[in-house]
């Protein structure tokens, strides 16, 4: 897969991500309509596919993918379209022929969005009370899986030690917020 596209998603490159979004948008909408997807659902599905492909970029999964960015994106989209068709089928009769509307793209399975537990929701509430730089620091460390050294290099901190102490302050603040909050 095109490395520059993976990097754009991984590194939050706004202008390149926007360019990618625009590049395949109209074709994807036309593709969705082959499956009788409502016009109003096309954008939602396209965005969900983008979120999923970005998750795969962040987790490192895309580096071992041989297909092009577009094929992979449309493969995820196809999976989401099938889910939407199942949704429609609960409201009207289901047309199995729609599953064969296009054979150009193989379905790429993606995990359904995980619901947060009650404990995680509470944590989310306190997480949102942290300053922006702490939220970013914890996201980079624990979701993005960057090492202190990588964070220092990529985000302009003086050294790995500065990152370490900033992160540890953020964690302490978060723990204090949890401790002092009335339950």
């Amino acid at each position: 897969m095109e490395n520059q596209h993976i990097d754009a998603l991984k590194c939050d490159d706004n202008s390149r991500t926007k360019e990618l979004y625009g590049r395949y948008r109209d074709e994807f909408f036309a593709f969705s309509r082959k499956y009788n997807i409502d016009k109003t659902d096309c954008a939602d599905i396209y965005q969900e596919a983008f979120i999923a492909i970005r998750k795969h970029a962040i987790s490192g999964k895309l580096h071992s993918v041989n297909s092009s960015f577009k094929t992979y994106l449309f493969g995820i989209g196809k999976h989401l379209i099938y889910n939407k068709l199942k949704d429609y089928a609960t409201k009207s009769s289901y047309n199995p022929k729609l599953h064969n509307a296009d054979s150009e793209y193989d379905v790429i399975q993606v995990e359904d969005e995980k619901e947060l537990t009650e404990e995680q929701r509470l944590l989310q509430h306190h997480f949102n009370r942290l300053g922006k730089s702490c939220q970013q620091m914890l996201t980079l460390s624990f979701y993005r899986g960057l090492t202190n050294e990588e964070i220092a290099k990529q985000y302009g901190y003086e050294s790995e030690a500065v990152v370490r102490s900033h992160k540890s302050r953020c964690l302490k603040t978060l723990k204090d917020l949890i401790k002092t909050s009335p339950r």
Binding site: L123, Q124, L138, T139
Partner: peptide, 9 residues
Amino acid sequence: NIQYVSEAE
């Protein structure tokens, strides 16, 4: 848990 929450955010 922070991992899950920051991913969701």
